[in-house]
């Protein structure tokens, strides 16, 4: 894995996000502002809606690409009502309601530590796995980006990477057991 060339997908995503930001963010901001929300709230829900769109549009059966604007706007609106409007109404009754919502996106501490470790020690493998499983790029594309001679060797490397990361998961489990005892 020497000739890793990840600038291309990064640049493609950047272009996509800029386009969608310019296209949809003004409508989301207008809605949030009209309902009495702030710029930061608009930014928060828009970014999560954009992330959700990105993840949905990766899967092969996605039919949301044709209505990207409607999807992002609808999701952002829904999130804003959930997070800020309903939260406001329930705060008087129950303070824990907002705390629960915040928890949803938080990664548990032990996993976060492992993730941090993998980000540094296993970056190449994580990038390879991410391209295939998260970004769902075709294996031919993954092979090309990571400088493999073909799909076959990229696939073997993918399984080797799973093995490597699985070892870290195993190690973490052991350390955790030691810690408890």
């Amino acid at each position: 894995m020497d000739a890793v060339n990840l600038e291309e997908p990064v640049a493609e995503r950047q272009q996509l996000f800029i386009t969608l930001y310019q296209k949809v963010f003004p409508a989301v901001a207008r809605y949030v502002s009209k309902c009495g929300g702030s710029f930061d709230e608009a930014k928060d829900v828009f970014q999560d809606a954009l992330l959700s769109y990105y993840e949905k549009s990766r899967s092969a059966d996605a039919d949301i690409k044709s209505s990207e604007g409607a999807y992002i706007y609808g999701t952002a609106r829904y999130l804003w009502i959930k997070r800020y409007k309903e939260a406001q109404q329930t705060t008087q009754l129950d303070d824990s309601a907002t705390a629960d919502l915040a928890m949803e996106t938080t990664i548990p501490l032990s996993e976060d530590k492992l993730l941090h470790f993998l980000e540094t020690a296993g970056k190449r493998c994580m990038e390879l796995l991410r391209s295939f499983y998260y970004d769902q790029l075709p294996m031919t594309k993954v092979a090309q980006l990571f400088g493999f001679s073909g799909v076959r060797s990229a696939t073997v490397q993918k399984y080797k990477c799973i093995e490597k990361v699985r070892e870290s998961v195993k190690q973490k489990a052991l350390t955790y057991e030691d810690f408890l005892e």
Partner: peptide, 18 residues
Amino acid sequence: QVYTLVQQYGRKQVKAEI
């Protein structure tokens, strides 16, 4: 757990890109 971690990794990176 590996697949879960890869999802979290990818999501974290994309959030940073956004």
